[in-house]
Write a protein that binds this DNA or RNA. Structure first.
Lengths: 344, 344
DNA sequence: TTGTACGCGTTATCAT
DNA sequence: ATGATAACGCGTACAA
């Protein structure tokens, strides 16, 4: 048996009416007799008629659905952001289509291309760590596809953006570690061409500077695949400990990197973490680590909400919008055990 | 500026051809002159023509996309399963549309209804903990919509199903705890009307029976919202400790419940976990807990793969399929510290 | 080899 | 108050 939903035509045939009459009845038009309207409505209800959204999309030239492109959904930051996105989209009558780049530029391009081929009205994007060249997005944007970036934004594309205050997040984390008495604070972060990476680095540097600690580039390591590849994180840690000045504390960037670093540090030394540690993470499981993990938390849900509101504004706007803002939401420093000064 | 992709019509007009000729050229038909074909292909390439998938869907009466309905993507079991689903769907030319029920029957129904309204060719479903009545799915299935269940299956609907061996998983976990010397093993699990819950309970009971330990219903607590509501888990634990025979070990069911129990147990008693604990979890973070968590791991990725292969088989089958199998994949017991016998 | 006409499901417009 | 027709983008059976 094939899946053959009823159409307006079926109803029309059954009731000896024209499709237009049925359509009008269904849409509650008043220029129609109450009798016919009732007849149609009752029959439609009975056979459980549902309008075909594909036909509607073709006609209206919009799909009432928005696409999300994120690196990874198995990541609490992104899954929380998606929950925020959904919460708004649903209420506004939009369906949401999620896709993952797995931090690969190629997958990202394919996904975006697929979505952009007119099955979506707009795009919410957080670019992959691997992506350097944004031509594919730039093109779509110029052709008029509404795009809003969140978290992993593309500075060179002129549209709405929503980010956490990564500068402040990193600044706070660094100051916190300094206050706890750490001297050689390292930073293991994501790909250097990501805007968030740069902002975090700036915050980190500024905090050092404000406390008269010289900045040492050797204490900063980058993970080009955002921690998706364990080896790159392992190498980063190894490099840090090769330095003459061994780090006594580390700041980790991003959910994934943060937990991988933790795992590696723990495996490295028996008897628990020996150095101070704090990471950017939205996982709700870090409290259960041992030592419990101090984190910089980003307002993921709220970022999703804000981005979606902007996107829908863009989609539904009658006239072209040319003035764009970037919304910056506050981060939150949560102090637990891992960053406390410990006796050596 | 509006987003107005080029159509076959635009190409035809530009090249002074009919739309059918252009269509044929694009589809590589051989009943066409090489000259025209080349001309069209080159121009199409130049202006970056993409066929409109909505129009195609309307015509072919299929969308080449499949819908996923899961309780929650912020859950490693499901996000891993989704990765498995994507890996297959992608290669077979299907787009994937994800939606979450958040363990609510109502959300689930809305999502399924939305997807089923012909924007998808088939459905992969893992039902919510709250859902008891499956009429909405039953109806769609009877109308011929291809559906495959994975993990949270509906036994009464006759179609393909993919599950982990929850019976064995629970059996193994229970035996392991017994072997470690625990006597009063409790089980905090999901909603009692979920099939997986029942299977796990059976495995748990059988293990007790095989070791001459009487089954005590007071040692089993259910969480109807699958751990989404912390209070229900808190209550479950409270109830267990109200018993005369206080539990000396607990088996947790499901990613979410497992971590919430852990958190609550840890907060409850200062100085670490006092009782034996093991849970069903696919999180990659449980190793970092303290004590590190013993878990029953489900082959989430493989389940996603298997379910998708079956669904596509169902979708693409010429004649109706009436014989359905249920694929059962093995679980894995990973012994860490939390389940080791500890001195009291 | 190329063009014309139709249909997929729906609604807007223009008749009746 | 209701019906007929065109249009959205595409592919194809049929006509030329």
């Amino acid at each position: 048996m094939k899946f053959e939903p009823v159409t307006i035509k079926d109803i029309a045939a059954k009731l000896n009416l024209s499709t237009s009459t049925v359509s009008r009845a269904l849409r509650g038009s008043w220029e129609i007799s109450n009798k016919t309207k009732k007849l149609v409505l009752e029959y439609a209800e009975k056979i459980n008629y549902r309008p075909n959204p594909i036909a509607l999309s073709l006609k209206e030239r919009r799909s009432h659905s928005i696409g999300i492109v994120v690196p990874e959904i198995a990541n609490h930051f992104f899954s929380q952001a998606i929950n925020g996105i959904e919460s708004i989209a649903y209420n506004r009558g939009y369906h949401v289509s999620i896709s993952q780049s797995h931090e690969s530029t190629e997958r990202e391009m394919v996904n975006i291309q697929h979505m952009a081929s007119r099955s979506i009205d707009g795009l919410l994007v957080s670019i992959s760590a691997e992506t350097e060249n944004l031509k594919h997005l730039q093109d779509l944007h110029e052709k008029g596809l509404p795009i809003v970036f969140f978290d992993r934004i593309a500075p060179e594309i002129n549209t709405y953006k929503v980010v956490a205050d990564n500068y402040k997040g990193a600044y706070d984390a660094t100051v916190h570690l300094i206050n706890e008495g750490y001297k050689n604070i390292a930073h293991i972060t994501s790909s250097p061409h990501l805007f968030i990476t740069q902002k975090r680095l700036e915050g980190y540097k500024k905090a050092l500077e404000d406390h008269q600690i010289p900045y040492d580039p050797k204490l900063v390591e980058y993970c080009n695949y955002g921690g998706m590849v364990v080896d790159e994180v392992e190498l980063a840690i190894k490099n840090l400990f090769k330095n003459k000045k061994k780090p006594d504390a580390i700041i980790g960037g991003g959910d994934r990197i943060t937990s991988v670093i933790f795992l590696l540090l723990k495996n490295q030394k028996k008897g628990g973490l020996k150095i101070g540690y704090i990471g950017f993470s939205n996982s709700d499981l870090t409290d259960m680590f041992s030592p419990s993990l101090s984190v910089v938390r980003q307002p993921a849900f709220e970022m999703g909400v804000a981005a979606t509101e902007l996107l829908i504004k863009l989609i539904e706007s009658k006239r072209p919008i040319t003035e764009f803002e970037t919304i910056v939401l506050d981060t939150q420093l949560i102090e637990k055990e891992s960053s406390k000064k410990r006796i050596e």
